[in-house]
Amino acid sequence: MFRQSRPPDPYQDLVSRAKDGDTRAFDALILKYGDKLFGLVYSMTSHKEDTHDLLQEIFAKAYQSLPKFQGKSTFYTWIYQIATNRTLNFLKKRKNRATSSINEMEEAIHQNPALIDTTNDANPERQSSINELQIKLNEALMKLSESHRMVVTLFDIQGLSHKEIAQVLNSSEGTIRSRLHYAHLQLQSALQETWEERF
């Protein structure tokens, strides 16, 4: 996981070409940032269709606003700002669908090889414990407020630094650290019972 500052803009050339109307360059930017943004939005919504619709919206907004992008921040920060704003607005409107979302994330947890422990000492029993923890963790995540879940997602899942999260969410580093601390405490408490049973 990375926590150090990113280079200024690794895809500056693509950004410039996309600003000049090169649609292929914008396609390339979608492919470069798509997986990361998918992870961000899916972690927040736990719903594939919502994630897909939101990503379409996010990239459409970025495409329309690209002529106004002045390069004061990196493209990376800029598109993350669009993604977090759109996702948080969407979640405000969709609070009553959280239960079904958890079920869908559970399915993803069981199917995704990324969440399966492939170390040498891995065994079925241990894997089952990890899966159960992941499910409990997801339930706990969904119980956090959107702003706390966003900070945890950006820091622990996306690997952004406190400073980068502060820039993306247009907030202070102190606020980000405070939210992260509170969210970690909540997650620790939520996992305590399962942790004691399994480890």
Binding site: G39, S43, A114, Q134, D156, Q188, S189, L191
Partner: peptide, 21 residues
């Protein structure tokens, strides 16, 4: 016993590889 913050972070970081088909 509660899991430590590092253990929570490790569990969460496993999700960084969640990708579409």
């Amino acid at each position: 016993m509660k899991p430590s913050v590092e253990q929570i972070s490790n569990l969460l970081s496993q999700r960084s590889n969640l990708r579409p088909e």
